[in-house]
Write a protein that binds this DNA or RNA. Structure first.
Ligand SMILES: [Zn+2]
Ligand SMILES: [Zn+2]
Ligand SMILES: [Zn+2]
Ligand SMILES: [Zn+2]
Lengths: 120, 120
DNA sequence: TATAGTTCAGCATGTTCA
DNA sequence: TGAACATGCTGAACTATA
């Protein structure tokens, strides 16, 4: 269980608590979602301060341009080979997820762990 | 000399450290599991780069299609044969089935210049 | 002992909703 | 925007079997 604990897992972009590796970088959920949304749209973001904004947990929302830049600096990138080429299966879901199908799927992995979220 | 270490056994597919022969080829645990899972569920994998992806330890996850192709090129195959009580050396040396299919695949794969570089 | 099969925590990425 | 959830894939460790 690595009681060492000395190793804090912080987001490489804003320093918030990281939940794991996302897009090849250790980041928090916020920067993960931000990157996914932003990198595709790439709406010519421009920083009003010549890209000198600090990106931390508090101010990360203030300047998307600098946040995105820091994401890229941290090594984040979309895996072009493995994305958008496989989503077909779980689409076209009209109502609430049918517990039956989902349960069936998840049952395969629910043998021992109740939730396979990142422990912490 | 339990671990002379001088002789490194590398995976024929990705070059990672091999753990032994798996499905008739010297491979690592990763490619072993990948092949077992994929060869049966061959869900029409397609490479977004015309099958010219390099398959090494770092990038082997990027393109399943090319990874599987390299597995087959390395001679990997499920031994779905009958009793499987023993691996007969004279394994259907008369059947053109494997030879032709194999050659065909290899031909398709090794056609263009392998100079194509994938991201990263 | 060696290889094939099984398990499962973790990774990658997308979706939902407050 | 981001926490929570959904799913498929990966591979180290383990088990089964010859
Ligand atoms: Zn962050
Ligand atoms: Zn800025
Ligand atoms: Zn390998
Ligand atoms: Zn490929």
């Amino acid at each position: 269980m690595a009681s060492g604990e000395g190793e804090r897992r912080n987001c490489a972009v804003c320093g918030d608590r990281a939940t794991g590796y996302h897009f090849h970088a250790l980041t928090c959920e916020g920067c993960k979602g931000f990157f996914r949304r932003t990198v595709t749209r790439s709406t010519g973001l421009t920083c009003p301060f010549a890209g000198r904004c600090e990106v931390n947990k508090i101010q990360r929302r203030h300047c998307p341009a600098c946040r995105l830049q820091k994401c890229l600096d941290a090594g984040m990138k979309k895996d072009t080979s493995r994305s958008s080429v496989r989503p077909p299966p779980a689409f076209a879901r009209l109502g609430p997820r049918t517990a039956s199908a989902d349960a069936l799927r998840r049952d395969q992995h629910l043998h021992g762990a109740a939730n396979h979220q990142v422990h912490q």
